[in-house]
Simulated scan of single mutants.
Amino acid sequence: MRKFLLLLLGIGCLTASAQQLPRKPLPPRPAPGGAAGMDDTDAQLMQSARDLGETLGQGLGLLLSSGGGWDSFCNRIDAGLGWGVDYGGLGLKINYQAPAAFGVTAGFGYNTGYGSHPGDDQKWFWNAGLQLWCTDHWNWEFGVGPRYFKKFDDTQLGISMLTHYQHQIWGRLGAIGGIGFSLSTKTPDGFKKGDVAVRFEWNVGLVFRLFSD
């Protein structure tokens, strides 16, 4: 009987001691939506990148659609003076913009790089293009015209793709600027088959509205 009482007493002491011991804390749960193995710093960087991308996207959309329309839903004919691929270098261009989306452009000017390289042997350049106007201010343009490709040291016919932002300054006067690239349409002798050169393109100039209905 004494042994049985001692056994009960020992079990009671062990139970009381176990209840008084502090519990070992559990490991923290991962943040909701976090990737496996990603620490807090990586998660914060990813969230910051998302926020920055969203802010830049909203700002770009606001810029491209900012301001009132410039003779919206009209047939428009503009004359331009500027520098860049659309102007054939330093020159003039004419642009037609339909009431919705469609446009065409053609330019002719002096090749400002004429004679600076052995293959840059055309003094005058031209350019022609088709446009997709997403708003009265913003378009995409696909063009064709002679280009000097430094990689080939040769002037070739090039196909270009650019995007432009145009804005009315006052009355019939506006400004336009754009960036893009062009590709050579052929490969000169001595280069591997399929070797195609890429060239950075840009435009900046003034726009004068000749006609709108």
Rank of each mutant, 00 (worst) to 15 (best):
M1K: 04
F4C: 09
L5V: 01
L6W: 05
L7P: 00
L8Y: 01
G10I: 08
I11A: 15
G12R: 08
C13W: 05
C13N: 06
C13L: 15
A16T: 08
Q20C: 07
L21R: 12
P22A: 07
R23N: 05
R23A: 13
K24A: 09
P25K: 00
L26C: 00
P30F: 04
P30Y: 03
P30C: 04
P32A: 10
G33D: 10
G34W: 06
A35Y: 05
A36W: 01
A36V: 11
G37M: 07
M38N: 06
M38T: 08
D39R: 08
D39A: 06
D42Y: 03
D42I: 05
L45R: 14
M46T: 09
D51L: 10
D51F: 05
L52F: 11
G53Y: 11
T55G: 12
T55E: 14
L56V: 15
L56E: 08
G57P: 02
G61D: 10
L62I: 01
L62Y: 04
L62F: 03
L64M: 14
L64W: 06
S66K: 01
G67T: 07
W70M: 10
D71Q: 10
D71L: 06
S72Y: 05
C74N: 13
N75S: 14
R76M: 13
I77Y: 06
D78P: 02
G80Y: 02
L81F: 15
G82T: 04
G88P: 08
L90N: 07
L90A: 15
G91P: 09
K93L: 13
I94R: 02
Q97H: 08
P99V: 03
A100K: 10
G103F: 03
G103N: 09
F108A: 11
N111E: 04
T112K: 00
T112V: 14
G113F: 09
Y114R: 04
Y114Q: 03
S116W: 00
S116H: 04
D121W: 02
K123C: 03
K123T: 04
K123V: 04
F125R: 11
A128D: 00
L130G: 14
L132R: 02
W140P: 01
E141R: 11
E141W: 00
E141F: 02
F142K: 01
G143R: 04
P146L: 10
R147Q: 14
R147W: 00
Y148L: 06
F149Y: 15
K150W: 01
K150L: 10
K151A: 14
D153E: 12
D153S: 01
T155P: 09
Q156R: 13
L157I: 13
L157C: 10
L157S: 13
I159D: 09
M161A: 15
L162Q: 15
L162T: 15
H164S: 13
Y165N: 11
H167Q: 14
Q168R: 15
G171T: 11
G171H: 13
G174T: 01
G177Q: 00
G177E: 00
G178H: 08
G178D: 11
I179A: 14
I179H: 02
F181R: 03
T187R: 07
G190Q: 04
K192T: 10
K193V: 04
G194D: 02
A197H: 03
E201S: 02
E201A: 05
N203P: 01
V204C: 02
L206Y: 04
L206D: 05
V207M: 12
L210V: 13
F211G: 06
S212Y: 12
S212W: 01
D213S: 11
D213A: 08
